[in-house]
Amino acid sequence: MLAAVGPPAARRPDPQRYAMAKQQQTVLERQYSRLGLLLIAPTVLVFCAVIAYPLVSAIYLSLFKIFTPTLEGTWVGLDNYRTLLVKGEFWTSLRANLIWTVGTLTLQIIFGVGMALVLHQNIWFRSLARSLILFPYFISTVVAVLVWKWLFNDLYGILNHLMISAGLIDWPIDYLGTMPNAMISVILVGAWKYFPFVVIAVLARLQSIPDQLYEAARIDGAGPIARFFDVTLPQLREVLVVIIMLRAIWDFKEFDLIFLLTGGGPVTSTQTLPLVVYKEAFALNQMGMAAAYAVIMMLIMLVFMILYMRRTQREDT
């Protein structure tokens, strides 16, 4: 309410009054501020201990060569970064990471929006259908991976059986052990697991589009397809941008799903950056190098994160 009108600066307050205007806060106001700080103190303490300190030391670690089992390190400066950037592994991992992110994100968005449009209609047992769709999102990645590994099983898996009996293939497919099958499988399972997020977010937005808009479009002679492109899609644009940014960030840093499904294999063809960090630190015992990978990865993600945060801040105010 107060933001509407600016102060007309007709008369300057005299100096004495100006000095008074700069007066300190009232006692009560100070008490409130102190209470506010007290209430946020646990958060700040935890943040410093388990987030800020580790974040800084991750950067610090990346400047050392550390052998994980003994945790003994020697200062190497920026050597880790230099090695990393000339090593092929970083670039192939980055490539795998981008293929995975773009692939799974695209499918999530397409399936998610499509499914949301379907669920927005008045279908039978809608809430049951919604629960079923939502479920993959909430189950543990471990469960999802076990189930899919069983579905993908080359000898007894139902997927191979169905495809053979449908005449699509003659021999069982190795879904996870060869390329490009492994990447495609990972992308598909990722899409299956995470598209419900898009469904729910889009569905919530769809339900908030006022009916008058559709009525007006109908009066103006728009058919169902025109109504989708002229009414629905523009209304969804905002929420889609937010979803895409969020999901891009989360998919980019996905570890569990890929690690558990393929472990980065065959060889390193589905090895994304988070997997390299893990491998360097705990399989190759190169803690310093792992930290360097993690820092580089964070820098790449920072672009998206800043974009998203700016947007959120703008909405906040």
Partner: peptide, 17 residues
Amino acid sequence: FTYLLPSVVLILPLYLM
């Protein structure tokens, strides 16, 4: 910011700590 931060960045120092 931390809501969006990847776990793999924090896990190494946390492990050491």
